[in-house]
């Protein structure tokens, strides 16, 4: 097989992986298409948020609520988790084209990603609790509804990504890093990086923009 080294956007397994590399083409391409759909979903929530900027209905606004240091921590956790997820994938790319490669390092990076995701969620939930304590619940105003929904949707995605990573870890332990799990890892990688990108948008528009 003389397949080109790059068959789809993002990290490719490479021709050394033979059939696995080939099989990734359709699988990852389709997942990208799905992510574009998800991107529109986030886009709609961003649009709703943008129209809600002044709809605080006399309730608290960004300047009353946003804790930039907590958000900075969350951003840090998520950015580092992108790195660790990338390391997990790189390990698969560089080692698992032959049989008998150790799965330890891959699992380590995978679980590190989950842990960092957990830290992110822990700080985010803390922020939501603090807002709730100040009466800034989504039932208070259109702006708060939009904020909770947008940031909450991202948090939900992070939770799904973590659950997915745990399932992958279990699957890899049960069945080894075979073609199926390699492709799942690649898709999960796209998903996790996507969450980072969405977060950067949230961080810039919602938090930094809100405090401007």
């Amino acid at each position: 097989m003389n397949s080109p080294p790059k068959l789809h956007p993002g990290l490719n397994l490479g021709p050394a992986h033979g059939d696995d590399h080939e099989a990734a083409e359709n699988s990852i391409f389709g997942f990208w298409v799905f992510m574009m759909s998800d991107l529109v979903t986030f886009g709609m929530f961003f649009a709703l948020y943008a129209t809600a900027l002044h709809a605080t209905a006399g309730g608290p606004g960004p300047k009353d609520l946003f804790d930039l240091s907590s958000v900075a921590w969350q951003t840090g956790f998520l950015l580092v988790s992108s790195l660790t997820s990338g390391l997990a994938l790189l390990h698969v790319k560089t080692h698992h084209h032959r049989s008998g490669a150790a799965i330890g390092p891959m699992l380590f990076w995978l679980l590190a990603t989950v842990a960092l995701g957990g830290l992110f969620l822990w700080r985010e939930i803390g922020d939501f609790q603090a807002m709730a304590a100040q009466g800034a619940l989504p039932t208070r105003s259109n702006w708060l509804s939009s904020l909770w929904a947008l940031v909450g949707l991202h948090g939900l995605h992070v939770s799904i990504g973590m659950l997915w990573a745990l399932v992958i870890a279990l699957g890899v332990l049960l069945r080894g890093v075979d073609q199926r799990w390699k492709l799942t890892l690649l898709r999960w990688g796209v998903f996790w990086h996507f969450l980072d990108i969405v977060w950067i948008a949230i961080f810039s528009f919602v938090y930094l923009g809100g405090l401007r």
């Binding site: 929530f45 709703l48 709809a55 989504p138 039932t139 208070r140 939009s146 909770w148």
Partner: peptide, 24 residues
């Protein structure tokens, strides 16, 4: 998104589309 947000209004008392509290 329209279904989810209207559902949030109806089930959890959000204010995406209500008449009051800035809903639109």
């Amino acid at each position: 998104v329209a279904c989810i947000t209207l559902g949030l209004d109806r089930y959890l008392g959000f204010h995406f589309y209500t008449n009051d509290l800035g809903g639109n």
